[in-house]
Design a protein around this nucleic acid. Structure first.
Lengths: 138, 138
DNA sequence: ACTATATACTTACCTAGGTAAGTATATAGT
DNA sequence: ACTATATACTTACCTAGGTAAGTATATAGT
């Protein structure tokens, strides 16, 4: 019995993030910020809780990252009728940059999956899904 | 074309780390510290560069984590003849705890891979390896 | 032997993940 | 209606990843 899966998963996730940051941070965003922007582009207007649940990241982390996105002018926040909530949406400026960010990040995905068959990728995704389910139970 | 692999990889790696931290941090170590301790247990005495290369983590991060391990009494550092180097080794105290840490982390691996066939795990590892190779080229 | 370069590590500073506890508002139970 | 509880977000503080630049020592090229 060896320790393996935690280790290799952590390494690959870090490699991916590091390379994406190299590509996308010169365009004004870090990869974790991009994950939020990508979600907002589809959803128009969401609460912080929705972002937190979608990304599976704790609320305080989301608060901090949104503050940075707001300071950079990529998002706006407004309060709803439920005054505990804050709605988040992309600015026009962010929408103008969106295609460029998307291209960089799609290219990363294409490069990453090169030389791997559809069948292998399918199993890869299934294994990840099963592992996530297993971890939820703990 | 969707963005998928970076996202799901990041999520799974975080889930794994979070659960392992829940289990192992009450035993006096965080999961990233455990990765170093696990390596040291096999290697007896290594330089920081060796740790950095093995884990594929930048030197400044290793420096910081080793400082914490030293403060907690889990490792010792001594300088070699090449006075730029610092050799790192486990303390007796750490060796006494080792089996307990190992058990927790092996149990995590077992739980994580439940319900996944050997064949699927084999392909999973191969895909990860190929993705790492692909990313190195970027 | 001398100087430029390389290597090992550190310092300073950034982002991003986490937990624990706090504040303000909404909801549920009576 | 009133009070206890739940919800949404924030603040404070910890670990861990990164880059850029610094220090001290070793090595290579002449």
């Amino acid at each position: 019995m060896t320790l393996l899966y935690g280790h290799v998963l952590n390494q690959l996730a870090r490699n991916f993030k590091k390379k994406l940051d190299e590509q996308i941070s010169p365009l004004g965003l870090f990869s974790s910020q991009w994950a939020i922007v990508f979600y907002l582009a589809e959803k128009e207007k969401v609460t912080q809780v929705e972002i937190s649940q979608y990304l599976n990241v704790e609320a305080p982390t989301i608060t901090r990252t949104l503050t940075r996105l707001e300071e950079e002018g990529w998002i706006l926040r407004e309060s709803g009728k439920d005054r505990r909530e804050r709605f988040v949406m992309l600015t026009q400026k962010a929408r103008e940059q969106y295609e460029e960010w998307l291209k960089v990040s799609q290219d990363m995905e294409t490069e990453t999956t090169a030389g791997i068959s559809e069948e292998e990728l399918f199993i890869f995704r299934r294994v990840i899904e099963q592992m996530n389910k297993n971890l939820e139970r703990l």
